[in-house]
Design a protein around this nucleic acid. Structure first.
Length: 874
RNA sequence: GGGUGUGUAGCUCAGGGGUAGAGCGUCGCUCUUACAAAGCGAAUGUCGGCGGUUCGAAACCGUCCACGCCCACCA
């Protein structure tokens, strides 16, 4: 009784508090686990490895319920594997989250009225490290609070020394293999973040815009183009029409005057143009639109950049210095004065790209950037899944994965930011370009400078499964724990992260996959199915709920909602309910301990056990096997549901209630049952521990005196089954339920004891008479017993003496209703059995079932008729 | 536009060709030898609509409706 004994004693029990107080035990337990080194993996161990690397949370802020959700599931997986005897490594760490973190720090600076340029690169990076320390620390605290069994001795950060070396190593390798190159292309540019961003960092949303029709050209050679982005016309270098469009056939190849400028631009024919849309003529701005860029390349058009990095017009003239949106209206006005606006602006909803980090409208821009050539890498990433080296759960996600890897564009990896891994490339005074490996000295001398840019944050995240284990060094960790076993993450970052890890992992580790299984989770939603996000008012700090109801309650609720790949709804009431479950386990174990439940000694032979004992053991073993299958299949919702119902319904409600007479009578049978109850609780707590580690640890150490559940063995199905006992207990439950129902119908108080005569002859229930009487609150029929009601159920008859308290009319009404149902059932069964087509086609077991229904309906009709006849006249 | 998923009790969701399920909520009774932060009992449904297959459909097929997500395009 190590733990419970330290709790506050109460009046009702000198040793155990009557309610579970999670706050008092959780923190202490976690520190003890860490101090004892339970979570530290040993690379020299002979045990088979089981590895998960945590998806590194961004150091941008605090963890939310989505993190808590994934952490819970990963913790459950690793705790179980540890109990199963694996050398388990769950590796913690955090992501520097380049652009996201930089934005946070810039916001902080902005509040002081400063910009990053004001303080300079070095000071800014220093400040960002301070941010990382503060928020990173907060995240670590939250992980501990959740009970996450992480190996803190191996904590990593994407910008620590080792990982930076890994980044440099793979950059160099890719560069040497000509899989990294520098090229000028249209990229997505965020004018607020002042950096390039990759395609998937752009969020498209429908914005209200205005479509304006403008007349280009002079004299006979005019045509009308429609555009939502008037400001880009200063950079137009062509007009495209469909090759088969007869309206414009005469203009193809001609030069057209571009208004507001002194330039003329050619009309080109391109299949990209949809003749049905707008006027069928498109202005082409190759330097400011990806499609136009493609058209421009096909036709050798000039590329004229008209805006700077802040999206300010740079073309000399009246519009110079205007912001892109100011320029839009100014140019429309100028065009109107020239009579070139042929159709006024009309509202037009179209999807517009926004920076996923700051929501600013993205400005496509011609720019010199570094790229990863993905073709071969993506092919390998696709093949690994196709060939079954990596399994996606749920499997339906594979399609989405293939769609992506099979149609991947080259990846823009340079970012014009300060927070991140600086690109290891040096430029010489003669235009030399040198990629510097991790063990090489950068070139020195006059005129050599390093590339100013940093790498996309996902570049280092993509190395996470092996960089964290020491790569590029041949470390014992890498040998022992790579490939990792499971990657558990949200389906929303398949493209950002999973694909990149696949590409880099296969490339760097000679085709060895980074993980064998990808378990994809959904998003956390509130109790009304609304998405939970930091910006929504429904966002909840998981710590609040943990404080109120315990970490176990939050964890159980999250696991209970975890259907593979599906979103998880969660509400406070549900967490509260899970807290009640923890309290229930607490009290049931408390009761068990008060009645001598133990795990000492061998389990008595089955012959010495009561039917009830054999029944619960039989059920226990079935549940062990069932739970194992659910764990293996990432079916946490079903797992939690199964354990919840087995524990609450079968063990706590039925087994404990049915066994009370045995326990209170004492003697040898009580000892046997106490041992059985100890066995059941022991295994049940082990099964539950991965999901609710704290309450189970506390109770288990009290029950068994063992050191810790964390390092205890995983329970096995002993193979013991007793179907006869299971069937018998079902009958007992039926009898008790019927008596309870009847009592309730009669308005009897639950505590009211009723004299009754039980006729259990003809059934195997005789040994359960005491238990039935105990649970159904029936006293022996004494002197002057007079049966006023008779309940036939499960082949038995229970006669009760209610001495005038019976509500005859209510009972008659109920019986009549039951009779109607039975007759309907009989008619239905008869109809089926009289149907030759049915008999010919239905399988035997189905026919047998229906015959059984008919027999039962007949018996019910007879029984109920007799019951009605037996009712006293009102 | 192309994919894809969902629709079952008041809410959140399981299930699944052979008598409709759980948790929470609701209602009733109760501090009964572990638990009132509790217990016991009860009620609750055109299984989204329509058509088809079948002896039998909530389940399978088709179609429609509603909602969601992913991808692409949007001059």
């Amino acid at each position: 009784m190590t733990d419970i004994a330290q709790q506050q004693p109460t009046d009702s029990n000198p040793e155990l508090p009557t309610t579970y107080a999670p706050a008092e035990v959780e923190g202490k337990l976690y520190e003890r686990w860490v101090e004892r080194g339970y979570f530290e993996a040993d690379a020299k161990s002979d045990k088979p490895p089981f590895t998960i690397v945590i998806p590194p949370p961004n150091v941008t802020g605090a963890l939310h319920l989505g993190h808590a959700f994934q952490v819970t599931l990963m913790d459950a997986l690793t705790r179980r594997k540890r109990m199963q005897g694996y050398e388990t490594l769950w590796l913690p760490g955090m992501d520097h989250a380049g652009i996201a973190t930089q934005n946070k720090v810039e916001q902080q600076l902005a509040e002081e009225g400063k910009s990053r340029q004001d303080i300079g690169r070095e000071a800014f990076v220093e400040k960002t490290w301070q941010w990382k320390e503060e928020y990173g620390g907060r995240i670590l605290g939250q992980l501990r609070r959740l009970g996450a069994g992480l190996d803190w001795s191996r904590e990593r950060f994407t910008m620590d020394e080792g990982l930076s070396k890994a980044v440099q190593t793979i950059f160099k390798k890719l560069y040497d293999d000509e899989l990294i190159y520098r090229a000028e292309r249209i990229i997505n540019w965020c004018p607020r973040c002042m950096t390039a961003i990759s395609d998937i960092e752009v969020d498209y949303q429908d914005d209200d815009g205005e479509l304006v029709s403008l007349k280009y050209g002079e004299g006979d050679e005019t045509l009308v183009v429609a555009t939502t982005r008037v400001e880009t016309m200063l950079g137009d270098t062509g007009i495209a029409v469909h090759p088969d469009d007869e309206r414009y056939a005469h203009l193809i190849g001609k030069q057209i005057k571009l208004p507001l400028t002194d330039r003329t631009i050619p009309v080109v024919a391109d299949h990209h143009v949809d003749p049905e849309f707008g006027t069928g003529a498109v202005k082409v701005t190759p330097a400011h639109d990806p499609n136009d860029f493609a058209i421009g390349q096909r036709h050798g058009l000039e590329m004229i950049t008209v805006m700077d990095e802040r999206a300010i017009i740079t073309v000399p003239g009246p519009f110079q210095g205007l912001d892109r949106f100011e320029a839009r209206s100014a140019i429309v006005e100028a065009m109107r004065q020239q009579g070139r606006v042929v159709a006024e602006k009309r509202p037009y909803t179209h999807s517009v790209g926004h920076c996923s980090r700051c929501k600013t409208t993205v400005e496509p821009r011609l720019s010199l950037q570094w790229w990863v050539k993905v073709e071969t890498l993506a092919k390998a990433a696709g093949d690994a899944v196709r060939e079954g080296d990596v399994a996606l759960h749920p499997k339906e996600m594979e399609k989405r994965y293939f769609d992506w890897v099979d149609n991947l564009n080259d990846w823009c990896i340079s970012r014009q930011l300060w927070w991140g891994h600086r690109i290891p490339v040096w430029y010489g005074p003669e235009g030399q370009v040198v990629c510097v490996g991790p063990d090489e000295q950068p070139p020195t001398g006059e005129g050599w400078t390093q590339d100013e840019d940093v790498l996309d944050t996902w570049f280092s995240s993509g190395l996470w499964p092996f960089s964290t284990l020491g790569w590029p060094e041949e470390t014992p960790d890498l040998k022992k724990f790579y490939s990792t076993d499971v990657l558990l993450t949200g389906h929303d970052i398949i493209f950002f992260w999973v694909v990149r890890m696949m590409m880099f992992g296969l490339y760097a580790m000679d085709g060895e996959v980074p993980f064998k299984t990808v378990a994809l989770t959904g998003l956390v939603r509130d109790e009304f199915g609304k998405k939970m996000s930091k910006s929504n008012p429904n966002a909840v700090d998981p710590i609040d709920w943990m404080d109120a109801y315990g970490s176990d309650a939050v964890r159980f609720t999250l696991a209970n909602g975890a259907n593979p790949g599906a979103d998880v709804p969660i509400g406070e009431d549900w967490v509260k309910a899970s807290g009640k479950f923890a309290n229930k386990i607490w009290n049931a174990t408390r009761f068990a301990l008060m009645n001598g439940a133990t795990v000492e000694g061998e389990l008595p032979p089955a012959e010495q056990m009561s039917t009830t004992d054999r029944w619960i053991l039989s059920r226990l073993n079935s549940v062990v096997t069932e739970a194992d299958a659910y764990y293996d299949d990432y079916q946490f919702a079903k797992l939690a549901d199964t354990l919840y119902h087995f524990a609450w319904d079968e063990v706590f409600d039925w087994y404990v209630e049915l066994s009370k007479t045995t326990f209170f009578a004492g003697g040898e049978p009580a000892k046997v049952s106490a041992r059985v109850l100890g066995e059941v609780l022991d295994k049940l707590l082990r099964l539950l521990h991965p999901i609710v580690p704290f309450v189970t640890e506390t109770l288990w150490t009290s029950l068994t005196g063992g050191e810790s559940l964390v390092i205890a063995d995983w329970p096995l199905d002993s193979g013991f089954r007793d179907t006869a006992a299971e069937q018998e207990i079902v009958l007992v439950q039926q009898v008790i339920t019927e008596v309870r129902r009847f009592r309730n119908d009669q308005g009897l108080q639950p505590a009211q004891k009723v004299p009754a005569e039980l006729d259990l002859s003809g059934t195997a229930l005789a040994p359960h008479e005491g238990a039935i009487r105990q649970v159904a609150r029936l006293t022996p029929a004494g002197e002057g017993f007079h049966a006023t009601a008779s309940l036939p159920v499960a082949g038995c008859t229970v006669a009760l003496d209610l001495s005038g308290t019976i509500d005859i009319e209510a009972e008659r009404k109920r019986l009549t209703k039951d009779l109607g149902l039975a007759e309907k059932e009989k008619a239905d069964a008869n109809k089926k059995l009289g149907n030759e087509a049915f008999l010919a086609k239905a399988p035997d077991n189905v026919v047998d079932k229906i015959r059984a229904r008919l027999t039962k309906a007949d018996a019910d009709i007879e029984r109920i008729t007799a019951q009605i006849a037996g009712l006293p006249q009102a």
